[in-house]
Design a protein around this nucleic acid. Structure first.
Lengths: 152, 152
DNA sequence: TTTCATGTAACTTTATATGTTGCGTGATGC
DNA sequence: GCATCACGCAACATATAAAGTTACATGAAA
């Protein structure tokens, strides 16, 4: 299956926004992410509805952070995306009237549920602020490029 | 994304085969699984290569179990399918020259790896024999339908 | 009122699982 | 030998969902 990269993408956007003040246009963010402005608006819509970011129209408008980065976890961001399914595998059918199917589904569902719960828990342990910290640690001698200079 | 149901499907087939002796044609199994014979051959190919099942051509041919069900785990079956990706989410890009990307990927990769490891471990704990046992427990007053009678 | 930027719908593209057709190969039974 | 059965496999078709694109409306700033 084609893997969903929206979470990775939106985190990238948020972290970039945390590096500089001003509002960012979808155009600017899209260029930095090597994608399309509409895609940016699409994945940001959920975050806006939950109040993690704000958007303004017209001259000088664009996207701004509107939350305390130390209070928003990766799980929150995932939820803001609409909680897309985490696992690539699922059961063949629902409503099994077949005992074989019931036994298979029970075993798989248990394993899947455990893995999903662990993943959500892990995502819930990491805040955006922690990601920012990790990034600064990686700095060393290197300088974080400005968004405008993202594409050398 | 469209969820991969091959593991669920092949387990279903194996458990059904464990209920009755004779060889099963792809046609028969496909009817029971409400799918196409070629799909059956496709997902069984990996199991055959690893020796979990055997196939024979011609009159009286078909698929037969060729392993000790108590020695084959769900993880083994998963591996026989070619170890398709378990998670529906992935990183936006590889080869990140961007610190933001590195930090995001590091956090996500860690969470993803943990979840994947747990899932594989869980699958490794369950043998096909255990699934068969579970199924028998579910029997109660009900009778396991023969494959031929699968579609009422 | 012109320009800029978001909001959104509709459409196209791409990737992957799944379904289907056709033909080759080997084994069985006559 | 030859017809039939069943797998092996390639090639093509379909379905679904993410990602990309186009078009236009709305609202804010200059």
């Amino acid at each position: 299956m084609k893997r969903d990269s929206r979470l990775s993408g939106v985190l990238h956007v948020l972290l970039h926004m945390a590096q500089q003040p001003g509002p960012f246009t979808s155009e600017t963010l899209a260029t930095a992410m090597d994608t399309n402005p509409v895609v940016i608006r699409r994945i940001m819509a959920g975050l806006r509805d939950l109040g993690y970011v704000r958007s303004e129209k017209g001259h000088g408008g664009g996207w701004m952070l509107a939350c305390d980065l130390s209070k928003v976890t990766l799980r929150d961001v995932y939820t803001a995306l609409g909680s897309p399914s985490l696992l690539a595998m699922g059961n063949r059918t629902e409503a099994p009237g077949c005992l074989v199917e019931q036994a298979v589904n029970a075993a798989l569902d248990q394993a899947f549920a455990d893995a999903e719960a662990l993943l959500l828990a892990r995502l819930g342990e990491v805040t955006l602020a922690m990601l920012g910290e990790d990034m600064r640690k990686r700095l060393g001698s290197r300088r974080i490029h400005d968004i405008g200079a993202h594409r050398a």
